[in-house]
């Protein structure tokens, strides 16, 4: 078998394995910790009889392993169970919200990825001179402030002081694409700021690392211009680390989106998860946790597979 096919399928299998492991970990945590769904519904002051009755009704008396496989089987078939608090079908609620979240995340990614790579290259080109230092200082500041605070700083200055966009990101199906974009402008801007700094720093580090290789020195000694060295020699080899950086940060975006959605009251997955945690709606928390974990594991897997494919040494096996 071709080594690439072998490596890729190995990585794919590992991803599937991790996905199972993650679902077991999330389910196992809710089992192993003191307190369960029945306790969460009735609160701390519930009588033991009431608890026993509700556990019976919810089927919590059966062995954990049986319930895990039932739950897992449900997920595979797209059945995530029912919410404890409002009895709605979880899969349906998640379906709508996941679309909204992905829309927001994609909008942020479309702006931030090219910008981060451009700024990263710029910082390398002017290494240790003022553009590099300026970019470093700004990114150090943005990585030092939590996402939700960046959100409020942006709301305070852009939405309240300048009055440009609404501080609430309301969105629904009747809106046109343009209206939707307008509604998510601020949260997407905040997410861009959050991942831009990380991505740019990692791009800069990846390329700088590369620039110290012997063949780059050779190219420089040959008398090529700075730009030619970067474009012809450094960039092709930098694709793999850069794609890796981008994917890792998109995975990070998935987490950042949780907090940003809460700030802007955006009807997405993050808001749903946080609400359900507050209400101790365990089935919804489990379902959201698994969806977030799946997206995160999936993006990490794609990152690894792309870097395997982009490695020229693997494309031409001896």
């Amino acid at each position: 078998m071709h080594p690439i096919v072998k490596l890729v399928s190995q990585r794919f299998a590992l991803g599937i394995l991790l996905l199972f492991g993650a679902s077991a970990l999330i389910f196992g945590l809710t089992e192993a910790l003191p307190g369960d769904a029945a306790q969460a519904v009735l609160g701390q002051s519930a009588t033991p009889e009431a608890l026993a009755n509700l556990r019976e009704e919810m089927g919590l008396n059966r062995p954990a392993l049986t319930r895990y496989f039932e739950w897992l089987g449900g997920i595979v078939q797209g059945d995530l169970g029912q919410s404890l608090t409002n009895k709605l079908d979880i899969a349906e609620s998640i379906g709508k919200r996941l679309g909204n979240t992905l829309f927001l995340a994609c909008a942020a990614a479309v702006v931030s990825v090219p910008l981060a790579i451009f700024l990263g290259l710029l910082a390398v080109r002017y290494r240790n001179r003022w553009p590099d230092k300026l970019i470093s200082a700004i990114t150090l500041t943005t990585v030092s402030i939590p996402e939700f605070l960046i959100g409020y700083v942006v709301i305070y200055f852009i939405s309240v002081k300048l009055g440009w966009f609404s501080s609430l990101a309301m969105i629904n199906e009747t809106m046109s694409f343009g209206q939707k974009l307008n509604a998510i402008a601020l949260p997407a801007f905040v997410l861009t700021l959050v991942v831009l700094a990380q991505m740019m720093r990692m791009t800069r580090a990846a390329i700088l690392n590369l620039m110290q290789s012997a063949y780059i020195e050779t190219a420089e000694l040959k008398g090529l211009s700075n730009f030619q060295v970067i474009a012809r020699h450094a960039f092709p080899n930098a694709i793999s680390p850069i794609v890796n950086v981008v994917m890792l940060n998109l995975a990070y975006l998935v987490v950042g989106v949780v907090v940003v959605e809460v700030v802007f009251v955006y009807p997405g997955m993050g808001q749903y998860l946080v609400d359900s945690v507050t209400k101790r709606d365990v089935p919804v928390v489990l379902a959201c946790g698994v969806v977030f974990a799946a997206v995160y594991i999936g993006l990490n897997m794609v990152a690894d597979i792309v870097s395997i494919l982009a490695n020229p040494r693997l494309r031409h096996p001896k």
Binding site: A22, L33, G35, V255, R280, G289, Y296
Partner: peptide, 21 residues
């Protein structure tokens, strides 16, 4: 450790905090 790190820390923390006080 690989398994724990395959899930974002914030998400895992939220799952746990839904159960425990």
């Amino acid at each position: 450790v690989d398994l724990v790190m395959s899930i974002p820390t914030l998400i895992l923390a939220l799952v746990i905090l839904a159960i425990v006080p």
